[in-house]
Amino acid sequence: MALIELRNISKVYHLGGEEIRALDNVSLDIESGEFISIIGPSGSGKSTLMHILGCLDSPTHGTLKLDGLEIQNASATRLARLRNEKIGFVFQFFNLLPKLNVLQNVELPMIYSGISSKERRERAMQALTLVGLEKRCKHRPMQISGGQQQRVAIARALVNNPRIIFADEPTGNLDSNTGEAILELFRKLSGEGRTIVLVTHDPEIAARTPRKIEIRDGKVAATLTPEFIGQRSSVTT
């Protein structure tokens, strides 16, 4: 059984009487342990797809199974719990809380899952060690570099041991060297058996993942393997 099963998912918005189909009949399976990129130009619906996959939003139609649980009609509270327990997010703009230090930022998800402060501390330090920032745990986000902030965000996404990690343009705000290091970190995490979904508009980055899902006008345009991407790029050149 796949970790995530999307069946005929649609998301419809109503803007001033006009109906906008952000997602149109999308079906998709993501297996546990996969490293996937979702690629598409802006407005293609890839963000909407990620929001639905990440339990930030509910689909208008269709069914969604996450880890064997039917969640297409879940309440906001249930979605929040699922986000807390099963999903980790990494954002383009890091989204750390500026008033908290690095350690407190990493501890944040565990506060909402009711873990004791001692265990929170231990697990946060473990996650920070994993991303190589254990020495910076008392710093504020503003006191460390962008690449380090993103690694803190990754540690925060990892700390509750989620089934899947979503990264929304994780390198979009970083220079290429730092971005490279972040991608390397994702690859390493993938190698440890974590499921990672990378959302990007950059084909270069998408090309680095074993599987690529292309979204165009709210539909899955293609599901490609790297070999195929390689073929196509060779055709175009």
Binding site: A76, A80, R83, E85, L96, L97, Y112, S113, R156, N160
Partner: peptide
């Protein structure tokens, strides 16, 4: 941010 990481 708090909601995204699981605050109800």
């Amino acid at each position: 941010i708090r909601k995204a990481i699981g605050a109800t």
